[in-house]
């Protein structure tokens, strides 16, 4: 019901439903990449956050294509709607006049090559993994079922669910401790 996944080998014509789906998919991927590039390269921190928000929006689109609309909506709601906003909020509270190129002057000569090689290694590994894996096509599910998500969260993945709530609890306690220290 949600998306039509293109499974044909030949590229479909542009003005068919599949063709438009392909164009939209390319758009979402472009959004992810553009957002990521902006986030990394922006001079101003708030622009970087805006880039991050764009990237997250694109990612939500990708999730949607992966037949996971629930995750896509959560991505929008939590990452774009809360995480990006909190980061931007923090930046605005912290320093109104951002200093350009902070930490660029006395960096280690190894930093560039190291970062680059890490990135390249990661990319190579993921590429190899992607090419080697035998991808199997999952059948499209009929309708999305909110009950199924609830059941899965509270039975199959209940341990993960609880662990995440412990992480959140720790985060809250940490924030309280920090705030208390700031007050004294």
């Amino acid at each position: 019901m949600q998306t039509i996944v293109c499974q044909t080998t030949a590229a479909p014509a542009l003005f068919t439903a599949e063709g438009m789906v392909g164009v939209i998919f390319l758009l979402t991927v472009t959004l992810v990449l553009t957002g990521a590039v902006i986030a990394v390269n922006a001079q101003r921190l708030v622009r970087a956050v805006a880039g991050l928000a764009i990237c997250f929006t694109g990612l939500a689109g990708v999730y949607y294509f992966l037949l996971s609309p629930f995750l896509a909506m959560m991505q929008l709601l939590i990452y774009v709607g809360a995480v990006s906003i909190l980061i931007a909020f923090g930046i605005m509270m912290a320093d109104p006049e951002e200093k350009r190129g902070v930490g660029m002057k006395n960096r280690s000569p190894l930093a560039g090559p190291l970062a680059f090689s890490t990135g390249a290694l990661m990319f190579a590994a993921l590429t190899v993994l992607g090419l080697k894996t035998q991808w199997q096509v999952f059948p499209r599910q009929g309708t999305f079922d909110i009950k199924a998500v609830g059941m899965a969260l509270l039975t199959t993945h209940s341990l993960v669910f609880e662990l995440i709530s412990i992480v959140l609890l720790l985060a809250i306690i940490g924030a309280l401790v920090l705030a208390q220290r700031g007050r004294n």
């Binding site: 928000a53 929008l76 709601l77 990006s84 906003i85």
Partner: peptide, 11 residues
């Protein structure tokens, strides 16, 4: 979806 879009407006 509505709530996700509402939070975009906040941005």
């Amino acid at each position: 979806l509505l709530f996700a879009l509402a939070s975009l407006g906040m941005l």
